[in-house]
Structure formats: structure tokens, C-alpha cells
Design a protein around this nucleic acid. Structure first.
Length: 620
DNA sequence: GCCGTTTTCGGCCCGACTGTTTTCAGTCG
């Protein structure tokens, strides 16, 4: 049972408790626990075996720790079984519909015995909802609307997919006369890999004109609400967009507030309260007196904190680092000097070598690697040994045509099901840059998958592991290998883990990259572009890296060519470790070598997995 | 259900908007 599975069950326990009218703080405790579990890099299945490890997590006490242990051991917990027997799954799902919260869902279930979607729709159509307490004509109509919308809307959309439309909406509002500032806040600003809605923040201009411009945008199909300071709309794609018009003296406070995360805000509020102040979207106040509000920086400063980049605002220890002045200096797109994973028409790319190289030059890259597929991916026209040797000549010719960029002769070599690589060592030795990736056998058991990856990582010709977990957001689960062991092996072998910038990969995830960083891994951020356009995606990989707390120093392809090229051959010179080439025996934990860069060397800047001060977060 | 320099009880973040009410509960973020 993965952390995500456990988190989901805890979340549903919380909703069921809420529907039953339980103590709201008990509900919140379960929701908080779900969040904490989902953000742990280490699997719960590993943590349960360490005495007291669960209880050491802030927000997890004796009771929740036991529930997590039950879930790991049996896939369930007695309390959830009892709750499920009383409240069916589909009733829980009702709370996802706009306008239905726990109270109204409770009424539907208790008064009308509605147990599923079909029943809800039938009751609403028959006009049986509007007579219920807390319901009326309008709510009934909204339920029907929400049911129709929900079937067309999966809930979240990839950040990269919404990027252009989000900016178009912002520009539309920015064009209104007198508007001074427009920001896209929310999870969009935190650069989460998917966003559930968009939050626009506007200051300046006439509020009425701003609302008018916003609610009449061509992609708006439904105006959900329209007040003096706030409007909500639904777009034709199903996405909800909220706009808030705020005064300039409150803009920083509003930006902070609506950027979130909710958990980050709650921690900030606690700090304010402890100082006898109050923090809301209008500012930081002491009684009637406004202490700060115009910018985020002044609010953080007043609270005794360094400004925290939005990508880190997830209540994962960033506040303690900000207080201590030890926040990492996050990597930026401009730090990258290369893209080391891309395809051309020679395998399954859409553009030629020359087109890709020219596009890379236009992007300002100092060096790139052309990395076609290997032969296991026959459908992608993967290279065999002979084709690799021919390719070397083609790359050399390309170098002759393009003098103002360094081109590495690379390959994306398949990791076969048993951990063997798809090409032999002699062939790999021809290449300047070897990325290894999983493209098959995605559903192996954890021990098998772990042994497979550990074996592959020990090949001395390998430089990097591409899209390590193989997950596709929304459609394919990550390969179930043990990230802890893989990260330790990658660190000790000096193999970089990729953060793949493809919109639906973003693999490693922020949580995994954070764990890998703590184990001393280095990284590369690549596009895996299959066309010149896709080279633009690098920014999304950088966002993911920032969410993981990575600095430029953590990422190999930020190095200037002279240093990078000098570091490529290091592993090949070392004698081949024959014993290490065998896969570890299934089910047995593999001896973990110390990380290449010991954790202690890096603690000064790294965000702690569990901040030492977190248990006492109400201190200040 | 969690937490603790107020430590085993009594707190736990806060405001806008809607719709159902007739002063406010429910929902949402």
C-alpha cells in the first residue's frame, strides 16, 4: 500500500467523519494526516518498522499512527471499515460536487436515503431536494449543474497545459484601464504539477470593469459568483477560475494568502498570533494598526522570516529554514546550460538533428545530448549496436555544421526487465552520454523492480537515469521500486537522476527529488523533447526541481561545458565491479553504501525532512 | 485527534459569498 493509497483512505475517513457531524478538529486531524503521509518521501511501510517514527511526525499521534500501521499491515483499519459500512463510497463522492458539503450530503443521505449519483440526479430532477432543510430552488439547480460538470471534468489539469490560457486570462484583465498589478496565485504560482483551479489577483482599476472583463472572457461558460471583490467562473474546459480585486496596500497580503498553501498560511497565522498580531488577506495587523500588507517581503520580514519562494510553501519545513536564514537558493531556468535528453527523426522524434540543434542554440544552450532510443523500443526505431556506430559519424558531421554548441553523442538505453541494459558495454563505450530508462514491465513487484534498477545503476557506462519512475500523471502509476534504495545507489554510483520536464511526466516528482537530494544524489533536468517545440518545456522541470528545494549546485547540467565535459568519464575509468553486476536477491534489502556526498556536508542548506522545530511550531 | 514555557483540558486560522433565512449556516478557498 503506497503512501498515496494510505493518504486517500485517511482523507476519506475525514470526509465520512465530517458527514457524520464529528468534531471538526478530529476531521481536520485526519485531513492533516493524509497530507503528511502523501508528502513523505519514505514509504510508510518502511517507517512503521522504526519505533516511534510515525509519532515523531508533527500531526501524527498515537491514534493516527496506529491507523497507519493497520493500513500498512492489512490495507484497512477497523474504523474505516465501520464508517464505510455506514456511508457508501458514492455518498462520500457527493462532497466533491460544487455546493454540496458535508452538512448537505448528510441531509441527502439521512432524509432521502440517497446512496448514489443516479439517485441524487433523479431526486434533484424530481424537485425533492428543495424542500429539505438548508436546500432551496437554487441549491437544487446547482446540484444538477454540478453533476453535469463533474462528468465532463476530471478535476485537475496539468500545469503546462493550462500555462498559456492562464497567462491569456491574466493579460485580458491587465489590459483593463487603471489595473496596476495582476498575479496568478494559488497552486499555479506554487508550480504544482497539476492545478485544480486558477486564482487571479488584481489591484488597481475600477472593480466593476475588472469583473466585467473577467466574466465575459470568451472561454467563460458559467459565472458561479460575482461580488464586489470576488468573482468565480467556469471555463469551457471545466476549469474554475477565481478572481479577487484587492487594494494595493493589501496586495502582498492577498498574494501571500491566495498563493497558499493553506497549511503554509496556517503556520504563518500561528506565528502572527503568538506575537499578538493577526494575519489575513488584508494584511498583518496589531489591533487596528496595519503592520504590513503591500508586499509579501515586508510581511515575511515582520514575522521574522526570509521571503519564501512560492514553490516551497507547502509546510514541509520551509518556515523553520526561513527563520534560520538557511533557505536554499533555488535553481532558476537561467542556471541551466544544457539539455541532455532529446530525440530526432532518427528514432521517434519529429525534427531532424539540425533542427533540434538550431533550436537548442536559439534557446542559449551551451551543450546538448542527442539521445535516441535503443533497440528494445523497436516501434520507436531504437538503435542497435551497428546503428550506434553509424550514429557516431552522423553526430560528428553535425558538430562540423554547428560550431557554436557542443553536441554529445548520447543514447536513451532501455533497462530491460531483469536490469540488464539493452546494449552491451562495448557499444555503450562508444557513446559520450548514456541515459538509462524504463519503458517496459511497469508493473513488477517492488522487490523485483528495485533489484532491476539497482543492477542497471551499477553499470559504469551510465551517466543518468531518465524519467526514473516511469509514471505518467493521470494515467500510469510509477514503477514500484524502493526510492530510498535507488537514491542511495544512484548517489554512491554517481549516476544523476533526471527530472524530466515533459508535462505529464515531471519525473522525479518533487517528493522523490527531495528524498534523493537528502541522500546525496545529483540531478539533470532535461526535456526529453521529441520536437523543437518541446525544448520549451525545460521550465516545468525547473519548477519541479524548485519544489524539491534543489539549487543550481545539485544539477549537473548547470555546469559550464569545461567542467561538465571533464566529469563525464570518471566512472568508466574505475574497474568494473563484477559482483555488483548481479541483481540483488529478491526481498532482501541491498547493502546501502554511504552517499557520494555525505548528508552532513549538505545539511546547512537542505530543507529538513522533518524540521526539528516542527513539533514545537507554536513556540515563537 | 493533536498538542503543551497556560501540559491531561481546552484550545485548534479566517473571510467572502450564496442562499436560505429573518440573523446566519453552509460552502469554499
Amino acid at each position: 500500500m503506497s503512501n498515496a493509497d494510505i493518504a486517500r483512505i485517511l482523507e476519506r475517513i475525514a470526509i465520512r467523519l465530517d458527514i457524520e457531524g464529528a468534531n471538526p478538529f478530529r476531521v481536520r486531524a485526519h485531513k492533516e494526516a493524509a497530507r503528511i503521509v502523501s508528502e513523505q518521501g519514505e514509504p510508510m511501510s518502511a517507517m512503521v518498522s522504526r519505533e516511534g517514527a510515525l509519532e515523531a511526525l508533527p500531526g501524527i499521534g498515537k491514534d493516527l499512527a496506529q491507523k497507519i500501521r493497520d493500513l500498512v499491515a492489512t490495507g484497512s483499519t477497523p474504523m474505516h471499515d465501520e464508517l464505510k459500512a455506514r456511508i457508501p463510497d458514492e455518498v462520500v463522492d457527493f462532497t466533491e460536487l460544487q455546493g454540496l458539503g458535508p452538512k448537505r450530503v448528510r441531509t441527502l443521505f439521512a432524509e432521502l436515503q440517497i446512496r448514489d449519483r443516479a439517485g441524487l440526479e433523479a431526486a434533484a430532477k424530481a424537485g425533492r431536494l428543495k424542500g429539505l432543510p438548508g436546500f432551496g430552488e437554487k441549491v437544487e439547480q446547482n446540484v444538477l449543474k454540478a453533476l453535469a460538470t463533474a462528468s465532463a471534468w476530471s478535476g485537475r489539469v496539468l500545469l503546462a497545459r493550462i500555462w498559456p490560457l492562464a497567462h491569456a486570462l491574466a493579460e485580458r484583465v491587465a489590459a483593463v484601464k487603471g489595473v496596476a498589478q495582476v498575479e496568478l496565485a494559488g497552486s499555479f504560482r506554487r508550480r504544482k504539477e497539476t492545478v485544480g483551479d486558477l486564482d487571479l489577483l488584481v489591484c488597481g482599476g475600477d472593480a466593476e470593469s475588472v469583473m466585467q472583463a473577467f466574466t465575459t472572457h470568451e472561454s467563460v461558460t458559467d459565472v458561479l459568483g460575482r461580488g464586489e471583490t470576488k468573482s468565480s467562473v467556469r471555463l469551457d474546459t471545466g476549469l474554475q477560475v477565481d478572481l479577487r480585486h484587492v487594494p494595493s496596500e493589501s496586495f502582498g497580503a492577498a498574494l501571500l494568502y491566495f498563493t497558499g498553501s493553506k497549511e503554509h498560511n496556517i503556520e504563518l497565522r500561528r506565528i502572527a498570533i503568538d506575537k499578538g498580531w493577526s494575519l489575513n488577506e488584508y494584511g498583518l495587523t496589531q489591533g487596528e494598526k496595519l503592520l504590513a500588507g503591500r508586499t509579501e517581503e515586508e510581511i515575511y520580514a515582520k514575522l521574522g522570516l526570509d521571503w519564501i519562494a512560492p514553490e516551497l510553501r507547502e509546510a514541509r519545513g520551509e518556515i523553520e529554514l526561513a527563520r534560520a536564514g538557511t533557505l536554499p537558493k533555488l535553481i532558476e531556468l537561467s542556471d541551466l546550460r544544457a539539455d541532455l535528453h532529446m530525440h530526432t527523426t532518427r528514432s521517434d522524434g519529429r525534427d531532424s538533428i539540425d533542427a533540434m540543434v538550431e533550436a537548442a542554440i536559439a534557446r542559449g544552450h551551451e551543450y546538448i545530448a542527442i539521445t535516441e532510443h535503443s533497440k528494445a523500443l523497436a516501434m520507436a526505431n531504437g538503435f542497435d549496436a551497428a546503428r550506434v556506430r553509424k550514429s557516431a559519424i552522423e553526430i560528428e558531421a553535425a558538430r562540423g555544421r554547428h560550431k557554436n554548441i557542443h553536441i554529445l553523442h548520447g543514447l536513451e538505453v532501455d533497462i530491460l526487465a531483469d536490469g540488464e541494459l539493452d546494449l552491451d558495454d562495448d557499444t555503450l563505450n562508444v557513446l559520450d552520454w548514456v541515459v538509462i530508462s524504463i519503458h517496459s514491465a511497469f508493473t513488477q513487484a517492488p522487490e523485483v523492480a528495485t533489484a532491476r534498477v539497482l543492477r542497471a545503476l551499477q553499470n559504469p557506462f551510465v551517466h543518468a537515469m531518465g524519467h526514473p519512475t516511469g509514471r505518467i500523471i493521470g494515467s500510469r502509476e510509477p514503477v514500484a521500486f524502493d526510492m530510498e534504495q535507488v537514491a542511495q545507489m544512484a548517489a554512491s554510483e554517481g549516476v544523476a537522476l533526471e527530472i524530466n520536464s515533459a508535462a505529464d511526466r515531471l519525473d522525479l516528482s518533487d517528493v522523490n527529488a527531495r528524498l534523493a537530494r537528502e541522500r546525496g544524489c545529483r540531478f539533470v533536468i532535461d526535456t526529453d523533447a521529441h520536437s523543437t517545440n518541446a525544448l520549451e518545456n525545460l521550465r516545468f522541470g525547473v519548477f519541479q526541481a524548485r519544489r524539491a528545494g534543489l539549487t543550481a549546485a545539485d544539477v549537473w547540467n548547470t555546469q559550464p561545458w569545461s567542467r561538465f565535459s571533464g566529469s563525464l568519464g570518471a566512472r568508466r575509468k574505475a574497474p568494473r565491479k563484477t559482483a555488483a553486476a548481479r541483481p540483488a536477491s529478491a526481498g532482501k534489502s541491498v547493502a546501502t553504501k554511504p552517499a557520494a556526498r555525505p548528508a552532513a556536508e549538505r545539511t546547512a542548506k537542505k530543507p529538513a525532512a522533518k524540521p526539528p522545530a516542527a513539533k514545537a511550531r507554536r513556540n515563537s
